[in-house]
Simulated scan of single mutants.
Amino acid sequence: MSRYHEIKFRAVTTFQRRIGNPILGRLPSQTLLETTGRKSGLPRRTPVGGRRIGDVFWLVSEYGDKSHYVRNIQAHPHIRLRLKGRWHNGIATPLPQDDPRARLRTLPTVNSATVRAVGTNLLTVRIDLD
């Protein structure tokens, strides 16, 4: 990762961790991804954007496997997802072979624009819901 991308990554993730995620996580309409911490084993909740299509929820991670929630998924793929105030169980799978930029064109516009603007290592994640 270049020096520029490293600085951008640190600035964005610090903002998300300290300001964005705590605020967004409290909004009842916000989609939340609950993973199991790969080291702690504790539930970890992260606000995410994406779209449900049938029994599959699609999202694109801005930082690929540098994102803690992606690392947690790699260790424990069983997740919970809060959609429109209702919790769903599912199995999440990172898809490095998928084209994340093409996938973003199928997802909500505002979130996709943000992911494209701040992301440095885009990665598609597919969640098969029960």
Rank of each mutant, 00 (worst) to 15 (best):
M1Q: 11
S2G: 07
S2K: 07
R3Y: 12
R3G: 06
H5G: 01
H5F: 05
I7S: 11
I7E: 12
I7C: 02
K8R: 15
R10C: 00
R10S: 00
I19E: 05
G20W: 02
P22H: 03
R26V: 00
P28S: 00
S29F: 14
S29N: 08
L32I: 14
G37W: 00
G37R: 10
R38I: 00
S40C: 08
P43W: 10
P47V: 10
P47R: 10
I53E: 15
G54C: 10
S61V: 02
S61Y: 10
D65H: 11
S67E: 15
S67A: 14
H68I: 12
I73N: 07
I73V: 15
Q74R: 15
Q74L: 15
A75D: 11
A75E: 11
H76D: 06
L83Y: 09
G85T: 11
R86T: 13
R86Q: 03
R86C: 06
H88L: 13
H88Q: 09
N89Q: 12
T93G: 03
D98E: 09
R101F: 09
R103G: 07
R105F: 09
R105H: 10
S112K: 11
A113T: 08
A117Q: 05
A117H: 04
V118H: 05
G119N: 01
L122G: 08
T124W: 02
D128R: 15
L129F: 08
L129R: 09
